[in-house]
Nucleic acid binder design. Structure first.
Lengths: 140, 140
DNA sequence: GACTATTCCGCCACAATTCCCCACAAAAGT
DNA sequence: ACTTTTGTGGGGAATTGTGGCGGAATAGTC
């Protein structure tokens, strides 16, 4: 189960060290891709396959489907953490998420996300206000 | 699983080096054909056969079917990557996709596409806006 | 049939990137 | 305070991308 938030440095080879607690979920590999709100999404393999199955059900031939699958898959990369539990983020994804020297890694139960610290803070602040509101709307 | 995006040079003999990760899927050969939106489509043999089977189920005699199958098959070429994992794109397909000195190769799970870089960028930009919408609908 | 021209493919070498390993620093636990 | 675990950095080996050269295969011409 992926939980929590941690600040991670990105070394000058572009590697990010995953939190210890995440290693087990990601041990057999993971897929990074473009998430919403300019963050990166990390799926454990099992979760990724569920996602792929879901996408395969979308109506083929449809233009929106084509657009979506092209973006979704073309931004995805299969990664396997090294012996120290680090992953090397592909250049184009690092740019997309505007990652510099540091990153925030957050767990979201069945997947994880990586954010630029500044962006995360901004997003967080915004969310604070809407949190209660959203929670009650969702009936949590 | 075909994933990711890479920029590839086209050497002066018209060869494109497939990304390392794609080799396994394409090792036993592939079929290139005309894709939608002026790109080239690459099918691993197994996927190609599925496609053919599907097309065989289309109502014969129907004019759309005739039109489609003629285009689809007449543009298709069977290729086998050389020992270095390169493929030689047929002239007429290169022209069709307006490929020059560089190409973008993208993985789409069960197939791959080749784009002219400029065209891809333009297409990508257009899709960005609709991406979030489609993604949230899918619960990504 | 032999010669030539063109296309195609394999090999090699260089460059760049990625991966693997080791060492150290910092933090946590005893 | 010492040991253990977790995070960080970097050197160097291995892998991968790229372009060039030359030989094989094919086709076209005399």
């Amino acid at each position: 189960m992926l939980l929590g938030r941690s600040v991670r440095s990105i070394d000058n080879k572009g590697r990010i060290i995953l939190p210890k607690e995440f290693r087990e979920d990601f041990a057999s590999g993971l897929v990074v891709t473009k998430g919403l709100d300019a963050c990166l999404l990390l799926f454990p393999m099992a979760e990724w396959e569920k996602k792929v199955a879901k996408i395969a059900e979308m109506p083929e031939g449809n233009e929106d489907t084509r657009r979506f699958t092209r973006l979704f898959f073309s931004n995805a990369t299969r990664l396997i953490p090294d012996a120290q539990g680090r992953i090397l983020i592909p250049q184009h994804l690092k740019e997309m998420a505007e990652l510099k020297k540091e990153a925030i890694v957050i767990g979201l139960s069945n997947k994880a996300e990586i954010w630029d610290p500044e962006k995360w803070q901004r997003y967080n602040k915004e969310s604070e206000e809407r949190y209660e509101e959203a929670a009650s709307r969702l009936g949590v």
